[in-house]
Design a protein around this nucleic acid. Sequence first.
DNA 1: GACAGTGTTTAATT
DNA 2: CAATTAAACACTGT
Length: 282
Amino acid sequence: MPELPEVEVARRQLARWTADRAIVRVLLQDPAAVRATLSSRPSDRLADAAERLAPLVGAVGTEPVRHGKRLGWVVGGVGLLAHFGMTAHLVRRRAGDEVPDLARLGFELDDGTVAWFVDGRRFGCFTPVEPGELSLRLREGCGPDALREPLDAAGLRAALKGRRPLKVALMDQTKLAGLGNIHAAEACFRARIGPSLPCAEVPAAGWERLAEAIPRQLREAVEAEDSDADLVYVNLGGPNPFAVYGRGGEPCGTCGAAIRSEEMAGRTTYWCPTCQATEPPA
DNA sequence: GACAGTGTTTAATT
DNA sequence: CAATTAAACACTGT
């Protein structure tokens, strides 16, 4: 589930798995996973993907960095940007083991493991850039990182202005980078604000609560997801860990009212009508 | 077989 | 100009 916390977990995995390890082979299962820009379209593939990744062989990478939902990594004089799209995640396997289903790209390391980028839906990709431009390209078109560079109440109010519903604005990566459909809904719940309330109608106290709720939501999600299951890919089956997301019709854990759901800007949005009592303007 | 889904961009429309 | 909607990308899970 690649929103900011999931990408941060992937960053930590990649850092742990590749620290001080040279890449001995790049396994390009799906050449279309390497794109000219961070695009969700496989048709934006780079024609010379294999050549562009060839300099990675023999090199040890720097510690990967993250901005919002993007990763940046420098290996062998190549800057790599990565986006995880809807379904990408990293899996570690031993070299020679069966290639994971839907693996797109693998980095084989000198300890006999492979870090695989697995992405069924193929919206995720890697984009090679000049190393000197990496930090710029990583942030390009993005607002501040919602976890590392959290905005205070005044900053949020200034960034998320206008008539847009709050939850839609929270997902606007150009204003604040990192929140997606799940964590935006959860942050609204934590701040006790209805997701459809226009930004212009959020009261001062609401911005204060949001400024706390956003980093807290993200921090707790990272902690919960940063497991030690490095060698075993654990499917995301199991109980729904969220307070409102995916709980339409269920009783709110806080007040017992039925969680509601409604489409907003094309995405299903969940909220508690009691705990988040702010109403849309009819 | 139908449908929804963690993301993003683009075009068309209101 | 602001905002929404639809479509596209491609595949899994229910």
